[in-house]
């Protein structure tokens, strides 16, 4: 279990770095040009890592289902939703809702075991835990952090590009 938590923490730290780097790119070009570059880099890195780790096996796709090809488009949907939400609500409120929805759906997914993932039975502890985390996110996000408008803008750009 510890290994799983550690991996999730690493993923989160990388997402944080990636969002900052992507925001730097976005300062000089548009959202879609940035998104194209970001996903292109992700593709190249995944392919290279796959070839290093698995060699020729990288190209044997067993049990490939047609919908697997389309699931990458969810990321494009994420970009559209986040850009629109940020534009309408502002970064702080938009991201608070995004994070809350992320956690809520995570709990829903575990409980229902959709898509054939292993079911994690719903428990009252899980619900309370998620509610406390959501409360923490709201305190963190809405608790008044930024002192200057400039930094709020930077956060906005960064948040708008969370595509992972």
């Amino acid at each position: 279990m510890l290994a799983g938590i550690l991996l999730a923490l690493i993923a989160g730290a990388l997402v944080s770095l990636q969002n900052i780097f992507n925001a730097k790119v976005n300062e000089h070009t548009g959202s879609w040009t940035t998104t194209t570059l970001v996903l292109g880099m992700g593709f190249a890195a995944s392919l290279i890592m796959g070839l290093i780790m698995e060699g020729k096996n990288m190209f044997t796709l067993q049990h490939m289902q047609p919908w697997y090809w389309f699931s990458g488009m969810i990321g494009v949907g994420v970009v559209i939703c986040l850009v629109q939400a940020t534009r309408i609500l502002g970064a702080t409120y938009a991201i608070s809702i995004v994070l809350t929805a992320q956690l809520g759906f995570a709990l829903l997914w575990d409980s229902l075991g959709w898509l054939g993932l292993e079911k994690v039975p719903f428990s009252f502890n899980q619900l309370i835990g998620v509610l406390i985390i959501v409360g923490g996110i709201l305190v963190f996000k809405l608790g008044g952090k930024s002192d200057s408008k400039d930094s709020a803008g930077a956060i906005e750009r960064r948040s708008a590009l969370h595509t992972d």
């Binding site: 690493i10 993923a11 990388l14 990636q18 780097f21 956690l103 995570a106 575990d110 998620v130 992972d164």
Partner: peptide
């Protein structure tokens, strides 16, 4: 920066498979 996605996906997928979606997303 986009290249990080390879490691993000690998870590996230491995975590989901071992500790479930809720705990993974929370951490």
């Amino acid at each position: 920066g986009g290249g990080f996605a390879a490691f993000v996906i690998f870590s996230e997928v491995t975590a989901i498979q071992s500790i479930g979606v809720t705990l993974t997303i929370s951490a």
